[in-house]
Structures are given as C-alpha cells and as structure tokens.
C-alpha cells in the first residue's frame, strides 16, 4: 500500500514564489547560499546537545559516585559470608579500591601481617542487625593470632556496655576439636561473649594475623565460621 503524504491545506493557498533568477548576474547574489544562521528553526534545535550534556554528567558522575560509595573492591576472596580483599590497600590495588581507600582513609593490613575478613550478612543472607543475637561458630583458617571485632557499617567501633567490642583467639573457650562458639549480643551471655552496640548497623571483622592465606598457600576454600541469627529484640 502506498503511503500518500497528507497535503496541508495552507500549502495550497501559499504557492512558493519562484525567486527571481537572472543567469547573467546570479554570481553577484548571495542567493541561494544563505547563511544557516538566518534560517528559521525551531526554538529547541539545541535539544539534542542539552540531552548529550545531561547524559554525560548524570552517567559519568553518577556511575563514578556509585562505584566509589556502594561497591566493593575487586579481586575479593570470599568464603561463605566472609569477604576479604587481599590486594586492596597495597600498591598493586585496582583503581577503584585505591580510590575507596583514599576517600575513607582506611589503614589496610599488609600481606606480611595478615588478612582481614568482613561479614555484612548472616548465613541466610540477611543484613546483620545490631539488635539481634548471633552465634558465630566453627573454625578459622590457620593463623597465629586472630581477633573478632564488631563494628558498624562505617567500620567504626561500636560503643558497648562492656567497654570492649572484640574477642581474640588467646582468650577463648574451645571444644576439644578446636572449634569455638561465640555469642554476639548486646546483653551479657555465658561462654564467649562478643558485645555489640546498638546503632549504625553491624559488621563483623575477623582479622587473621600471620596466616598462610596471604602467602598464596591454601587460598582455595578457607574454612570460616558460620553466622547464625538468634532472637531479635
């Protein structure tokens, strides 16, 4: 089916006038070459350019902001809910983690010192909540010393009633096979009690000192403790 162009009725009334054209003298006249600037155009002819500027700024700045605030460094070493970034904070870090560390002024652990694992969620993928009780049980990868610290989502220490918010491997009750069970709660608990604070989210930091994980031996599937949620207030 051929498409017939609809002719506007105005076009019938206004016949385009043939411009006067004299072949003898036409070289003198600017016509038909009239500057583009003198044509009548729609008011928003620069619309596509404004659109370009908007896309540039929103996409460029927005994605950089999201990458530096919401995302985490590359090359994560993950085991269960525990995540570590062995390369982040060294001079071999990727540009994203270098920018994240420069913005937050974090002090990383060197590879000759140890490796820090962080847990943000529990075993069933729920965000850690400071008003809940958590049971952290199992074993850690081999390390000379390790510490478990409760911090908030900005990695600031939580203020607790007990005056401490950490446990270390030296003062821990263990089973015969070396496994342990730690209860993280706001209120005092029997056994290994990790006091937590009340506000600002909850993140567990497990720092392993002098561990073979950083030297590259036994990287595959380190055994990490599990985090189970108990009652919530």
């Amino acid at each position: 089916m051929t498409k017939m162009p609809k002719m506007p009725s105005l076009a019938l009334l206004k016949q385009p006038q043939e411009p006067f054209f004299d072949p003898e003298t036409s070289w003198q006249k600017p016509w038909p070459r009239v500057s583009r600037l003198l044509y009548r155009t729609s008011l928003f002819s620069f619309g596509p350019f404004v659109f370009f500027l908007l896309v540039t700024i929103v996409f460029g700045v927005g994605s950089a902001y999201m990458a530096l605030t919401k995302s985490s460094p590359f090359e994560a070493l993950q085991s269960g809910v525990w995540v570590a970034h062995p390369k982040a904070g060294t001079d071999a870090a990727d540009p994203y983690s270098a920018a994240i560390f420069a913005r937050t002024l974090r002090i990383p652990l060197g590879s000759g010192e140890g490796l820090a694992f962080y847990a943000v969620v529990d075993d069933r993928g729920r965000l850690l909540n400071p008003s809940c009780t958590y049971t952290i049980a199992g074993k850690t990868p081999p390390a000379r010393v390790w510490t478990l610290t409760a911090v908030n989502q900005q990695l600031e220490l939580l203020a607790t009633d007990a005056g401490r918010s950490y446990l270390n491997s030296e003062n821990l009750l263990r089973d015969k096979d070396g496994s342990f069970e730690i209860t993280a709660s706001q209120d005092a608990r029997p056994g290994n009690w990790l006091p937590t604070g009340s506000a600002g989210g909850l993140v567990f930091a497990l720092r392993l000192y002098d561990t073979p994980l950083t030297t590259g031996a036994g990287i595959a599937g380190p055994q990490m403790p599990s985090i189970r949620r108990g009652d919530c207030q």
Partner: peptide, 17 residues
Amino acid sequence: WGLAGLLVGGIIHILIV
C-alpha cells in the same frame, strides 16, 4: 547525541576514579 553522551560519560567516570 545520546550515544556520544554515554561514551563521554564513560571517560568522565574513568577520569574521576
């Protein structure tokens, strides 16, 4: 122009990071 905006936005992202 929108495609150009995405490309230049990617360059700005890299420069910022």
